[in-house]
Amino acid sequence: MSGETATSAITHTHYRRFDRADRILHGCLMFSFLGLAFTGLPLLFSHEVWAARLARLFGGFDAAGTIHRLCAVVMISVFVTHLSRLARRLFGQKDLSILWGPSSMVPQPADFFELIGHLRWFIGLGPQPKFDHFTYWEKFDYWAVFWGMGIIGGSGLVLWFPEVFAHLLPGWVFNIAMLIHGEEALLAVGFIFTIHFFNGHLRPEKFPMDSVIFTGRVTVDEMEEERPAELERLTRAGRIDEYVSASAPSWVYRVGRSVGAVAVTLGLIMVALILFAVLR
């Protein structure tokens, strides 16, 4: 009991997790994703009354289309910026840690064992695995978005400039582009607004919200509970001090919490509308 009081007295000590650029990129991604979802899904569910209302809310189909394309430009820019940052780390700084090891997003055998361990823990067959910097579900989120960028972004560009792409591809590709643009969008929206929201914010340990993506910092408690392997690894390497940081300014928390709450609410509304349309 006294030990717990002692730790909570020093919860002002934080560890850095995301740098400013990552947070800004995630913010832009979030904003453009919501914009794309809310202007795109009315088309996919065009027979629903809510779809027509939503399209009208954005100023009609023409305006909604323009917003959709603007958001697409923002999202593609986020993707390109991310890729160029990776390239700079890899080729400029010769930082090979992004290709393998605990700081890499590349799936590794450890992820598979952690997944099995985690599932065993769910059903009470073992202890919770000790996670490092990136967990298997975070990697899945990352690669799902990565794949989605290629598939939705690529098909979206084909549908945006069909006359241009018709010089390179036969017209029936537009049928396929249309299909996968819609289905993949449904997958992305369904995944982000349910699974990602749950993993990130809504699961009992985090409810109602984890603000790490807005503040970039985790508390010592969180680090001990959620990423003991990372804490241990960095402590053993004597590098943990590089990550120690003060708490983010309180306005960052306030803004983060508000933006997060709005995004989660909008996302869940969209999920409800989709379920209403699919199950009816």
Binding site: P162, E163, A166, P170, W172
Partner: peptide, 16 residues
């Protein structure tokens, strides 16, 4: 409507 349409473009199936 699609001023730049070509034979390849017209391979699109509007009733796919």
């Amino acid at each position: 409507c699609h001023f730049g349409a070509t034979a390849s473009f017209a391979k699109y199936d509007p009733h796919g």
